[in-house]
Design a protein around this nucleic acid. Structure first.
Length: 399
DNA sequence: CCGATTTCAGCCTTGGGGCC
DNA sequence: GGCCCCAAGGCTGAAATCGG
């Protein structure tokens, strides 16, 4: 480590386990205890921040006077002026590239985009150690009010703010680990993550599902051309299958005939389609889903439509597999409006499936196996709508 | 084991092309 | 002109993983 003249440096003291800093002030040595234990990380930190830490502690302990700080600069200026301190843009890019292996391509793109916006707000050239908890708190508030330049006045939800925080947090916690800063300002009380309130998922009852299916039939019957008729016919069966298997919509459109075992009554879920990309299902986990009689019936019928034509279970009217779930969602909403039920999403079939299965006495362990969750808390948190009590049983409780 | 964080995937919007 | 399919970007819900 360099002991530049007129700069603070780590002072070795054999009799203590904490690190000290020393600096010549008016030609006299001033020594302060940092209170930090002698660890590799603390040494790294103090080597990088000797000057600013020295002044901060020495002022706090009254060992120097404010007017002794060189160049009459304030403490905050000294902290920002350290030429060795990496800048936000440079260090952030380095960190995000270094940690890229854990993310998928799409996620990495998302992260980079968020990072660019973070730089736009905080400034490319902002030294890492000058981002304060207050600045972060202010940023979050502005995001929630839609007052940041790239938002066009659109307020961000708490969830979105948390996702943006996550990117900055990755960078700042790396900065702590690398010894650039002592603590992560995001962990400060005033810069805490906003709260999110968990919603009860939208769930359709059996009657509502029937009405939705009826709407699909209606649109297929009254179609003025082949493509519309075909699309709604597919929708009819997809909806039914989604409701009786609980598959994710991306998994549903990716089904191939060889995934289905009609003899042993299961579906091997091993694929997912998103934005035209084929990949393993979420969490990179394949699973087996029980083929309930109602689902089996749907697939037997669908087999007559596409079984000989293609390896894919579901086809567009052009004879290709669906490249995304977009049109499904659009048609689902249309069906909701026609059926006069609450307008939801195709994914709610999955929630409805889970709720119905629990109401009808299937075990939670069966359910997590079929939904492919790692533990039951996910299922409980996200999947159950309002579960109807079994009034028949309750009414028998007479005292 | 549970809440917080991080990552992945669905949803929403815009827009274009093709078909009937 | 209405309807469906497809693409792409950004927001946010779903769900795994982390960390205490």
């Amino acid at each position: 480590m360099s002991r530049r003249k007129g700069c603070a440096y780590i002072w070795e003291r054999k009799d203590t386990r904490v690190l000290w800093l020393c600096r010549y002030v008016n030609k006299k040595p001033v020594r302060v205890s940092t209170g930090l234990p002698d660890t590799k990380q603390n040494r790294l930190f103090l080597n990088r921040n000797a000057e600013s830490e020295f002044w901060r502690i020495a002022l706090e302990q009254g060992k120097v006077e404010p007017d002794q700080i060189p160049n009459n600069s304030s403490l905050s200026i000294i902290m920002q002026q350290d030429p060795a301190m990496p800048k936000l843009r440079e260090y952030g890019e380095y960190t995000l590239n270094a940690t890229l292996s854990g993310r998928s391509t799409k996620t990495q793109q998302d992260v980079k985009k968020k990072f660019n916006r973070i730089c736009l707000y905080f400034g490319d050239e902002t030294p890492i150690n000058s981002i304060t908890a207050t600045m972060i708190a202010e940023w979050q508030t502005k995001l929630s009010q839609g007052k940041v330049s790239y938002q066009n006045g659109k307020p961000y939800s708490n969830k979105t703010i948390i996702n943006y925080r996550s990117v900055l947090n990755t960078i700042l916690s790396a900065a702590v680990d690398d010894g650039l800063i002592q603590r992560n300002p995001m962990e400060s009380r005033i810069a805490k993550a906003p709260r999110i309130i968990k919603k009860i998922p939208t769930v359709y009852s059996l009657e509502e599902i029937r009405a939705l299916l009826e709407s699909c039939r209606h649109y297929a019957k009254n179609a003025r051309n082949f493509q519309t008729e075909w699309a709604w016919k597919q929708m009819f069966y997809m909806l039914k299958l989604g409701f009786f298997t609980g598959l994710r919509s991306g998994e549903l459109i990716a089904l191939q005939w060889h995934d289905i075992n009609f003899d042993q009554n299961y579906i091997h879920v091993q694929r997912r389609i998103r934005d035209g990309d084929e990949d393993l299902p979420k969490g990179y986990k394949k699973r087996f889903v029980d083929l309930l009689p109602q689902a089996k019936e749907v697939l037997k019928t669908q087999q007559l439509l596409t079984g000989l034509k293609s390896k894919w279970v579901w086809l567009t009217y052009q004879g290709n597999p669906y490249s995304s779930t977009d049109s499904l969602d659009e048609m689902f909403k249309k069906a909701c409006r026609h059926a006069g039920v609450k307008v939801g999403k195709f994914y709610n079939m999955r929630h409805s499936f889970a709720t119905l299965m629990i109401e009808n006495g299937m075990s939670e362990s069966w359910l997590i196996q079929n939904t492919g969750h790692v533990d039951i808390s996910t299922t409980r948190d996200y999947y159950f709508g309002k579960i109807k009590p079994n009034l028949d049983a309750i009414n028998k409780l007479v005292v």
